[in-house]
């Protein structure tokens, strides 16, 4: 039986203290999309080395060396492990395709793929995602972080009725 989630304000304060510690120790906030960028470039490089090395956007990532020696990638690995430890301790690990009661797994996975692609692209435009831009930049009161966060939630609320069947 899965244990209940923690109080959102308490979890938020814990998350905020982790973010504060990251700023004090690392000198930068928390991030997630940067790791995906570096790992995806490494995967593309394994498939088409010459084309990726020539590319104006992707080439510099290859030149910077293995993604495994980038702090955002080790942070992402930590996020996976921390998430697993918490989920396991609370009895919340379960192999499943999470979706609303009337949504099929095919629809859910197709929208997960398309949504992931839009989020991955959007994070590149915005120089970060909900972690690096909204949360970390927001804590430093950055104008661009508030622009990103506002646009993100406005778009999500606007589109939510179209994908209601997926969730409710």
């Amino acid at each position: 039986m899965a244990k209940p989630y923690w109080n959102p304000y308490a979890a938020g304060i814990g998350l905020g203290l982790t973010l504060l510690l990251a700023y004090v120790v690392l000198g930068t906030g928390l991030g997630a999309s940067g790791a995906i960028t570096r790992l995806s470039v490494a995967a593309a490089h394994a498939v088409a080395p010459a084309a990726v090395e020539r590319d104006a956007i992707l080439g510099p990532y290859v030149a910077a060396g293995s993604p495994l020696v980038h702090y955002l990638v080790t942070m992402f690995a930590g996020t996976l492990v921390g998430g697993f430890l918490s989920a396991f301790a609370a009895g919340r690990t379960r192999l499943t395709i999470e979706r609303g009661p009337t949504a099929g797994p095919g629809l859910r996975l197709a929208l997960a793929l398309a949504g992931g692609a839009l989020a991955g692209l959007g994070a590149r435009f915005a120089l970060g995602c909900t972690s690096g831009q909204a949360l970390s930049g927001g804590a430093m009161l950055q104008t661009g972080s508030f622009v990103f966060t506002g646009a993100c939630f406005a778009a999500a609320f606007a589109v939510a009725p179209l994908v209601r069947k997926e969730w409710r």
């Binding site: 997960a112 959007g122 909900t130 972690s131 993100c152 778009a155 969730w167």
Partner: peptide, 23 residues
């Protein structure tokens, strides 16, 4: 950042995750 946020928001509600929470 405005356009990226709009794209990201659509991806968030359709995909159900953001990069950190997906991990």
């Amino acid at each position: 950042q405005l356009v990226g946020g709009l794209l990201f928001g659509v991806g968030f509600v359709a995909g159900g995750w953001c990069p950190g929470t997906a991990a």
